[in-house]
C-alpha cells in the first residue's frame, strides 16, 4: 500500500529551496559530475557512494514518508480484522496488514542506509513533522471499504510504485521490487472480495457502491498535485527518483480502472468520465485539491486519530523494547564474565 505522499513538500524546507547552493570546491564539482554521469547512464547509486546533499535529503524524506504510509496504512484496515465476515477473510486481512508492516520495515531500512536513524524517523512521524499518505486519513466505515482499499488504494499504489523499482537509489529500488511482488495479492484479494459482495444481496451491492463513491476521489488525489503544481517533480525526474509524472500515472490508473469497474458492476462517481477517442484516454472531472490540501495539512476526518493511535502503540511498546534490550545486555555481560 502506499502514497502520493512520496513527494510532499516539507513546509520547513520550502524556504531553503530558494537559497542558491554555496560555491562548490573543485573536488566537489568533480564528484558531482561523476554522480551526474552515473545518473545519466541509468546506473545505481549505492549507500556509501558520494551523492549531493539535496539528493540524500530528498530520498530520506520520500522513503521515510513512504515507510510511514505503510505503517499508518495498517490502521484503517486493522479496524476490520476483528469484524471480518468469515475466518477466510480474517486470515487474508491479517496477512495483508502484516505485509504492510513488513513493507514499512523494508523502507525504514532503506532510509537508514542514508544515515538517518530509525528513532529520528519515528520521532518525525510521531511529532507530526513527517507526512504520510493522506489516503489513510479517511475512515473505513463498512466492510466493503476493505475490498475497495485493496482494489483502488492498492491499485493506485501499484501504479505509483512499479516505476520506483527503477529508482536510481539501489536500496530503495530493491525494497520496491520486494514490495511490488507482494502488492498484487493485496489488489486481487480486494477485487475478489468485492465480486463476492456484488454477487450478494441488494444491500451488499449498495454497500460496495457507497464505498466506491467515498473512495474514488481521494484515490485519484493519491497521485499528487497536477504536474503544473508539483515543484519537486522536475528535480525528482532528473535524479531518476521519479520516473513518470503525477498526471500520467493518474491517467494510466483511470484507464485501467474503468473497465474493472464495469466487470464489477459499479459506477465511478464522475459524470465527466468518458472515453476520448482523440486522446486515446478517458477524460475525467476536476479533482477537489482544496480537500486534498486540507487533509495533507492535518484537517482530514482521521488525522488526529491515526497519529494518536500510532503514538500510543509506540509508547505502550516502550517497556517491551527496553526489556528486550536489558535482557540482551545482561546475557552479553554474563557471557563475557563466563569467558573471563
Amino acid at each position: 500500500m502506499y502514497t502520493q505522499a512520496l513527494d510532499l513538500p516539507d513546509p520547513a524546507q520550502r524556504g531553503l529551496q530558494a537559497v542558491p547552493p554555496p560555491a562548490a570546491s573543485v573536488r566537489e564539482t568533480e564528484l558531482q559530475s561523476h554522480f551526474d554521469a552515473k545518473i545519466d547512464a541509468d546506473r545505481k547509486i549505492e549507500p556509501r557512494d558520494w551523492m549531493p546533499e539535496a539528493y540524500r535529503k530528498t530520498l530520506v524524506r520520500q522513503i521515510s514518508q513512504h515507510a510511514h504510509s505503510e505503517i499508518v496504512g495498517m490502521l484503517p484496515e486493522g479496524n476490520w480484522i476483528s469484524r471480518a465476515p468469515s475466518l477466510k477473510r480474517k486470515a487474508i486481512l491479517l496477512a495483508k496488514v502484516q505485509d504492510e508492516g513488513g513493507h514499512g520495515l523494508y523502507l525504514y531500512s532503506a532510509a537508514e542506509t542514508l544515515g538517518v536513524s530509525r528513532d529520528e524517523m519515528l520521532d518525525a512521524l510521531h511529532s507530526g513533522k513527517a507526512k504520510y499518505s493522506s489516503i489513510f486519513n479517511y475512515p473505513t466505515l463498512s466492510w466493503a471499504d476493505v475490498g475497495v482499499i485493496g482494489w483502488l488504494v492498492d491499485g493506485a499504489a501499484i501504479m505509483n510504485q512499479v516505476p520506483i523499482c527503477r529508482c536510481s537509489y539501489g536500496p530503495y529500488a530493491r525494497a520496491m521490487i520486494r514490495i511490488c511482488k507482494e502488492e498484487s495479492f493485496h489488489q486481487r484479494q480486494g477485487f475478489e472480495s468485492l465480486m463476492t459482495l456484488m454477487a450478494g444481496t441488494t444491500a451488499q451491492r449498495d454497500m460496495v457502491q457507497e464505498s466506491v463513491n467515498r473512495w474514488w476521489w481521494p484515490v485519484l488525489a493519491m497521485f499528487g498535485p497536477p504536474d503544473a503544481n508539483s515543484p519537486h517533480s522536475a528535480q525528482g525526474m532528473r535524479w531518476g527518483i521519479k520516473r513518470i509524472s503525477n498526471d500520467d500515472l493518474r491517467q494510466k490508473f483511470i484507464d485501467a480502472t474503468v473497465p474493472q469497474a464495469k466487470v464489477l458492476g459499479v459506477t465511478l462517481p464522475d459524470s465527466d468520465l468518458k472515453w476520448n477517442d482523440e486522446r486515446g484516454h478517458y477524460d475525467y472531472g476536476a479533482i477537489d485539491w482544496d480537500d486534498f490540501w486540507a487533509v495533507v495539512n492535518g484537517n482530514g476526518p482521521c488525522n488526529k486519530e491515526r497519529l494518536a493511535t500510532r503514538v500510543k502503540a509506540h509508547e505502550d511498546g516502550q517497556w517491551v523494547r527496553d526489556a528486550a534490550l536489558a535482557h540482551a545486555r545482561k546475557q552479553q555481560a554474563r557471557q563475557l564474565k563466563e569467558a573471563a
Binding site: S109, E112, R174, A175, R321, A324, A328, Q331
Partner: peptide, 10 residues
C-alpha cells in the same frame, strides 16, 4: 536487507 533486534535470536 536489514532489521533492528535486541539480540541474535530475536
Amino acid at each position: 536487507g536489514s532489521l533492528h533486534a535486541a539480540d541474535a535470536q530475536q
